[in-house]
Amino acid sequence: MDDIRLDKYLWAVRIFKTRSDAADAVRTNKVTVNGAYAKPSREVKVGDRIEVKRQQVTYSYKVLDLVSSRQPAKNVPDYCLNTTPQEELDKLNVPRETIFVFRDRGTGRPTKKERRDLDELMDGIYYDDEE
Rank of each mutant, 00 (worst) to 15 (best):
A38D: 02
D7W: 03
V33P: 03
G124F: 00
Q55E: 12
Y9F: 15
V44E: 01
R54K: 11
P110G: 06
A22W: 02
Q86M: 11
K8C: 13
T32Q: 06
S20Q: 08
E130T: 06
Q56F: 01
D2A: 11
R5H: 11
K39A: 13
L10T: 03
E114T: 11
Y127F: 15
P110F: 08
D78N: 12
P40A: 03
Q71F: 12
V94G: 09
T111I: 05
L118H: 06
T84H: 00
G124W: 02
Y61I: 01
G106T: 01
Y9W: 10
S69E: 14
R5L: 05
I99M: 11
R14Q: 11
K53C: 05
P85D: 07
V52P: 00
E43R: 14
E43M: 12
L10A: 04
V31A: 04
K112A: 15
Y126I: 04
D65S: 14
T32N: 00
S68N: 08
D3K: 07
G108A: 08
D65H: 01
L118S: 05
D128C: 00
V67K: 01
T111R: 01
D123F: 09
F102E: 14
Q56N: 09
G124A: 13
K74M: 07
K91I: 12
R115N: 12
E87G: 01
F100K: 10
N29M: 06
D21E: 13
R27G: 09
A73R: 08
V101C: 04
K17L: 14
N34F: 09
T107P: 02
E88M: 08
K74I: 07
V63D: 04
Q55S: 11
T98Q: 09
D24E: 15
Y9N: 01
F16E: 02
L10E: 06
T32D: 05
R96S: 14
V46W: 00
D48I: 02
E51Y: 01
K45C: 05
D7G: 05
R27H: 12
Y61V: 04
A73F: 11
G47Y: 00
T107D: 12
M122E: 03
N34S: 09
L81Y: 08
Y9S: 05
T28I: 02
G47R: 00
V26M: 10
T111L: 06
E51W: 04
P72H: 15
K112L: 14
K39Y: 03
I4M: 05
S20H: 04
D90F: 00
T98K: 04
N34I: 14
N29S: 06
C80T: 15
Q71R: 14
N75S: 14
N82H: 10
V44L: 06
T111K: 05
W11Q: 15
R42Q: 10
A23Q: 08
F102P: 10
P95L: 09
A22E: 09
L89A: 05
D2G: 09
Y59S: 02
R14A: 09
I50A: 00
Y127W: 05
D3S: 10
S69C: 13
Q71D: 07
L121C: 01
R109W: 03
D78G: 08
V52C: 03
P110V: 10
R103C: 03
L81V: 03
K30F: 06
E43T: 08
I4Q: 07
A36K: 15
V94A: 04
D129A: 06
T18S: 14
P72K: 15
T111M: 01
I125Y: 11
I15Y: 03
P72I: 11
T28K: 06
N34L: 11
D24T: 04
E87M: 13
S60V: 12
